[in-house]
Amino acid sequence: MPPPPGQIILINGASSAGKTTLCRALRDALPDTTAGPFLHFSLDFFMFDADVLPRTPGGRVRDWGRIRPQVFDGYYRCLPALLSAGNNLVVDLIIETGAQRDRLRELLAPHDVYLVGLRCPVWELERREAARGDRRAGDAHRDAQTVHTFMPYDLELDCTDAPPHNVARVVSGWTARPAGAVWGRGAE
């Protein structure tokens, strides 16, 4: 008998908003379901952590403009495969366009999706981006202009709130949601 399909919590926000930190804390704080615990799964695993993308001698991703669409679509296709195999996921994303939102919505339509927007003031994004030193200057500002314009959320958070507060809000909102949640029913 196949395992029950997993559930997914998507955290959408600008670069440097704190999505990865929030996802790691959620992974450890969320209660197990019949499908088991939550796994954290991020596009950054491909981009930075696993070092799978081809690089130039200077360290930039080679042919990024050409391979970017297929890398993103491959990552998006991993999500329903992992869910269908019975894995619960907490995922951090930067949904940059309506087309990306539509593709994710199409792929995740059969699954229980809880959509969270992590908002962050531009001044704070720029401060974090500079402190990190591993992102191109201006990416966070660019993301802040568009990332929250494509959809309603089940829950919205402020990145300047203490991480434990935001974790508690997600856990509370997720556990109290109606059964069979669908993509972004509307902000709280």
Rank of each mutant, 00 (worst) to 15 (best):
P121W: 12
F48W: 12
R119Y: 13
R177H: 08
S15R: 00
W174A: 01
V182G: 04
N166Q: 06
G173F: 05
L155K: 04
G98P: 12
T149L: 14
Y75N: 00
S42V: 02
C23I: 05
A35R: 04
Q100R: 13
H111V: 04
T149H: 14
G133C: 08
T56F: 00
G184H: 03
H141W: 06
L157Y: 03
G36I: 09
F41S: 02
V170Y: 01
R127D: 06
L26N: 01
P2E: 15
F48N: 15
S84E: 15
P152E: 14
A99R: 13
R135H: 09
D51I: 00
W174L: 01
C78R: 04
V116A: 12
T34R: 13
P69C: 10
G59I: 04
G18D: 07
A187E: 06
P4G: 11
N87C: 14
R55V: 06
I8E: 00
G65C: 00
G184Y: 03
R135E: 10
G18R: 05
L108F: 11
R66A: 10
V182Q: 07
A130S: 09
P80E: 08
L104V: 04
R103W: 02
D51V: 04
L108R: 07
G180N: 07
R27I: 01
V71G: 01
H141R: 15
D51C: 08
A50N: 06
T149V: 08
L39E: 07
A140E: 04
R103H: 11
